[in-house]
Computed example of a mutant assay.
Amino acid sequence: MTPSSADVAPTHPRRPALPSLRRILAMDAAGMIVFGLVYLLVSDPLARLLGVGDKLVLTAGGLMLTIGVGVALLARRADPPAASVWLVVAIGAAWVAASVVSLVLNWWDTNTVGTVWTVLQTIPVSVFALLQLAALRGRT
């Protein structure tokens, strides 16, 4: 008796399905909006905790909030344009690069908490950029 196709193991494992591009963009936007608001609302104590100036925290918060709203609007589109998603990925990559360079060149003279936070905040930005790239590749 020969095995049916249902009995034969696949020759290559299936990759887990990625969340939709719109969902990835929406989650990214939500994080940026929440953290942008936190940075704006508690900039002074946060600046003291991180060992940086409050203007830096306010600027970062304003950027996160603005970019987050833009990404949220993009996520609402039925089929987000690839060029716009590439721009979101590029902004995330620039954020990560600027964060790393700021530490290497000691631009902000952060304390230990600020240094650790600067490194930690690059992780979700990097993850979302990679997920967005993977979702873009999955569209073709």
Rank of each mutant, 00 (worst) to 15 (best):
A6N: 07
W108Y: 14
L103C: 00
A60R: 02
P3G: 09
G61T: 05
G68Q: 01
S102H: 08
F128G: 01
R77N: 06
G68A: 01
V89Y: 04
A134L: 15
D79E: 15
V38E: 04
Q121M: 10
S99K: 10
V69K: 01
L21R: 12
P124F: 08
A60F: 04
W107C: 02
D54C: 03
T110S: 03
V42D: 10
L41Y: 04
G114T: 09
T11F: 08
A72Q: 08
S84V: 08
V34H: 13
L41N: 13
T66V: 12
V116Y: 05
L56F: 11
L131V: 07
L130F: 03
L105H: 06
G51I: 00
V85M: 07
L40W: 04
V104D: 14
L74T: 07
L63D: 00
I24N: 06
R14N: 07
G68V: 00
R48C: 00
S102N: 15
M27S: 09
S126I: 12
V42T: 10
A78C: 07
L37N: 12
T140F: 09
W95K: 09
T2D: 05
V101L: 15
R76C: 12
R15P: 04
G31Y: 04
V38W: 05
V34F: 12
A78D: 06
P81G: 02
S126C: 03
V69Q: 01
T11E: 06
V52S: 03
D79C: 03
G114P: 08
A72I: 00
R137I: 10
T59H: 02
R23C: 10
V85H: 04
G92M: 01
M1E: 06
R48K: 11
T122A: 14
S84A: 14
D28P: 01
G114C: 01
P124T: 08
S102R: 13
M32R: 15
W108F: 15
P81W: 02
L56Y: 09
D79M: 10
L103H: 07
W117E: 14
L87A: 15
G138P: 11
L103I: 06
A75F: 01
V100Q: 12
R22N: 15
A60H: 00
R139D: 13
M64K: 11
D28L: 06
L130M: 09
D79P: 02
